[in-house]
Design a protein around this nucleic acid. Structure first.
Lengths: 165, 165
DNA sequence: GCTACAGTACTCGGATAACCGCTGTCCGAGTCCAACGGG
DNA sequence: CCCGTTGGACTCGGACAGCGGTTATCCGAGTACTGTAGC
């Protein structure tokens, strides 16, 4: 079990985007520079987030990305599902229906108990991720990070945010 | 996020192994036949489970695999961690320490809030998996499965289990 | 008839190729600004 | 001086290679049975 590397980048970017002023946007190149990542690759994930309705994109010279809704309305689960896809991590291949002891398909109306247990665990995982909103991440960041980091972030946002599109 | 295909096979095999009599073993070839899987590939995962201390292996003509401890003492988490590895699904690459605003490493004594949230969710996932024991899976199976499947399983176990090694 | 031995067949164990998805990258479509020329 | 037009530059969007990891497989090491030969 392993999550895509892009999940971390996506969350960081969403966090930064949440800090710019209402209606403003920030281009992918600025986000990549701020996080020290490859612009080309980051763009791929930003595109995915936009397709999922978490970000909005604005084209043109003063374009860029911004949150499609408030930071309180975006959970970590939203971001993870957008990048990783909605399919559960455990995909039951219905092994029980294979082999020499297999019966007709109608005999397997009851779902596989293993699948149920695995999906229940994943529901717990998702429920926990759903509890954390983007705004919570920001609050925690502002409360614990080095003041110099916060100041740099604010300055960077002021410098790179684009006017209302 | 996706789990290895082998997790499902591993759980099914462990479940079947839990049903044979005390001290008996069952060869990988029988497990593969019962589940309609490739013997070569299944052996790989059984080996992994044995290395993790969940199964015990016995070599020789009457050899095979058996549970290393009781079905009550094996949780789904044990099996998943054995196959997938103990590392968390979310691996923080410390993106916050990259980019032009990075500070000296000492400034990042506090762990990354994003990482904390992701790990907390994974702890919930593992806690849920830890609740389900192999014996629970068997109980559920015997309570819900088609009687013919259960009878076939019992007959198969009787036919393929090897004497105490 | 009993025992010791060698051969054999069966098991697991580790090392080795093939496929798939994430990683990383590029160029094209669309959009807004700005400069320029005309009125 | 003001306005329309045109050119340019900047943005996102989708399509294209490269690589690591899981999948799938094979042959070798070890062990217990079995048949045989000797006592």
């Amino acid at each position: 079990m392993k999550l895509s590397e892009g999940v971390e980048a996506a969350i960081h970017c969403a966090t930064l985007l949440a800090q710019l002023e209402e209606g403003r946007t920030m281009p992918a190149s600025a986000l990549a520079e701020y996080h020290g990542l490859s612009p080309s690759y980051l763009l791929k994930h930003l595109k995915t987030l936009a397709a999922a309705g978490i970000l909005e994109s604005v084209s043109g010279p003063h374009g860029g990305y911004r949150l499609a809704r408030s930071a309180e309305a975006v959970t970590l689960l939203d971001v993870v599902l957008a990048i990783e896809g909605p399919k559960p991590a455990f995909r039951c291949a219905e092994i029980r229906q294979r082999g020499p002891g297999a019966l007709e398909p109608q005999a397997y109306a009851q779902p596989c108990g293993i699948n149920i247990a695995m999906l229940r665990a994943e529901q717990a995982y998702r429920a926990e991720l759903r509890k954390t909103r983007l705004s919570d991440v920001i609050s925690n960041y502002e409360a614990t990070a080095d003041p110099r980091s916060i100041a740099f972030g604010c300055a960077f946002v002021d410098r790179n945010q684009r006017p209302q599109g």
